[in-house]
Simulated scan of single mutants.
Amino acid sequence: MNQESRIISVAKETIVTESKAILHLADLVDEEFAQAVDYIYKSDGRVIITGIGKSANIATKIVATLNSTGTPAIFMHAADAIHGDLGTILQSDTVICISKSGNTPEIKVLVPLIKTRGNKLIAITSNKESFLGQQADYVLHAYVEKEACPNNLAPTTSTTAQLVIGDALAMCLLDIRGFSSKDFAKFHPGGSLGKKLYLRVSDLTSLNEQPQVHPDTDVRRVIVEISEKMLGVTAVVKDDKIVGIITDGDLRRMLTKVENFKGLTAKDIMTKNPKKINNDAMAIEAMELMDKHGITQILAEKNGKYCGVVHIHNLTKEGII
């Protein structure tokens, strides 16, 4: 077997091994899992998630997921916890401890300290019979038969399983809280995901010029309007209502068909009944319309009156595309 074939074989074997382990996790979700979720939901405190080694890396990801979906969470490294960071934990907080074996020295020191403080302890572990599993109030079973590592040493399948259990926990809490897309946008105001949920067409049209001409406007003036407003398009407007659109493409097509355009007006070359969108619509809807119809600009209106233009460059700049 050559090296390329070997690489492909190892990659596929890794994916299959981990996917089988993840699928088995569904059979391990039980009443204890539901009780743990319910306890966190009813708690007035935060979720403190701790771990050591690669489990600590997984803990930080779960913390991020919980925070972004409405459950306040903080990461506390298990090694730092026993050297002063226990002060992070408040009386009303719930502690989640992540450990594959559940028997590491740090865990054996940390767990009794948490129990002494009276905080509820939730374990995410592969070994329910471990020290951590026996001491925890709730155990979320993240059992894996073997690591994807051929030596069964490097944390691979086990950390994937921990992450999946964390995602399941977060999604259950999201569902119970009725966490909506509007709530999600509040926690992601600066990211592209959040912008897709809160950015409106009006936020984009306000950034642009508002090119417009009357149906009887001379073609020369139409060319000037499109050039000056630098959007590659102008609306044809009568009594504040959109009656047509003229693009750079329309002008080029006109030049190939007409040798003398003296006397031509906007209404002679415009496209009637152009695609439009409400100025109060979500920006993502504008993107979907442009993609559907293969256009790079779309006109906006409100209460039947022309409001401006959304250009595909606006969507790109905002990170929506």
Score class of each variant (00 low, 15 high):
residue 286 A to P: 01
residue 87 G to C: 08
residue 315 L to Y: 07
residue 135 Q to P: 00
residue 148 A to M: 04
residue 25 L to G: 08
residue 135 Q to L: 01
residue 240 D to N: 13
residue 165 I to A: 06
residue 260 N to G: 10
residue 177 R to Q: 15
residue 296 T to F: 07
residue 13 E to F: 08
residue 204 L to M: 12
residue 55 S to Q: 04
residue 161 A to H: 04
residue 51 G to C: 06
residue 26 A to T: 15
residue 179 F to R: 04
residue 180 S to Q: 01
residue 306 Y to A: 08
residue 175 D to S: 14
residue 272 K to I: 10
residue 232 G to I: 07
residue 248 D to V: 03
residue 160 T to D: 02
residue 208 N to H: 10
residue 144 V to R: 06
residue 238 K to T: 07
residue 318 E to P: 00
residue 201 V to P: 05
residue 46 R to P: 03
residue 234 T to H: 10
residue 320 I to L: 15
residue 132 L to M: 08
residue 162 Q to P: 05
residue 277 I to E: 04
residue 66 L to H: 10
residue 301 E to I: 02
residue 16 V to W: 02
residue 2 N to C: 02
residue 204 L to Y: 05
residue 27 D to W: 01
residue 267 K to T: 09
residue 269 I to E: 07
residue 190 G to I: 04
residue 170 A to R: 02
residue 241 K to Y: 12
residue 169 L to R: 11
residue 299 L to R: 03
residue 92 S to C: 05
residue 64 A to G: 11
residue 149 C to P: 04
residue 37 V to F: 03
residue 19 S to F: 05
residue 22 I to R: 10
residue 231 L to M: 08
residue 2 N to K: 09
residue 155 P to H: 06
residue 203 D to G: 01
residue 320 I to H: 10
residue 1 M to V: 05
residue 49 I to C: 04
residue 188 H to G: 05
residue 256 T to W: 06
residue 262 K to E: 14
residue 77 H to R: 05
residue 157 T to Y: 09
residue 198 Y to E: 02
residue 35 Q to C: 07
residue 22 I to E: 05
residue 37 V to N: 08
residue 315 L to Q: 03
residue 55 S to L: 01
residue 54 K to L: 07
residue 71 T to P: 07
residue 109 V to G: 07
residue 97 C to H: 00
residue 314 N to F: 09
residue 16 V to E: 15
residue 44 D to E: 14
residue 290 M to F: 01
residue 317 K to C: 07
residue 85 D to I: 01
residue 116 T to Q: 15
residue 178 G to T: 08
residue 38 D to V: 00
residue 129 E to I: 05
residue 194 G to Y: 06
residue 246 I to A: 12
residue 258 V to A: 11
residue 38 D to K: 14
residue 24 H to A: 15
residue 91 Q to R: 15
residue 126 S to Q: 12
residue 150 P to L: 02
residue 158 S to K: 10
residue 306 Y to Q: 03
residue 90 L to T: 13
residue 74 I to H: 12
residue 133 G to E: 02
residue 316 T to R: 15
residue 153 L to D: 04
residue 223 I to H: 00
residue 196 K to L: 11
residue 312 I to N: 12
residue 92 S to K: 15
residue 168 A to C: 11
residue 222 V to D: 04
residue 259 E to D: 12
residue 114 I to L: 09
residue 139 V to W: 05
residue 304 G to D: 10
residue 167 D to M: 03
residue 290 M to P: 01
residue 230 M to E: 15
residue 311 H to A: 12
residue 1 M to E: 01
residue 253 R to S: 08
residue 289 L to P: 02
residue 30 D to F: 12
residue 173 L to C: 06
residue 189 P to N: 09
residue 309 V to P: 06
residue 232 G to D: 04
residue 307 C to M: 15
residue 23 L to W: 01
residue 44 D to V: 01
residue 153 L to N: 09
residue 136 A to V: 11
residue 55 S to M: 02
residue 18 E to M: 12
residue 124 I to P: 10
residue 191 G to K: 11
residue 280 D to S: 14
residue 312 I to C: 12
residue 284 I to P: 00
residue 275 K to T: 12
residue 295 I to W: 12
residue 221 R to M: 13
residue 9 S to G: 06
residue 151 N to Q: 13
residue 164 V to W: 07
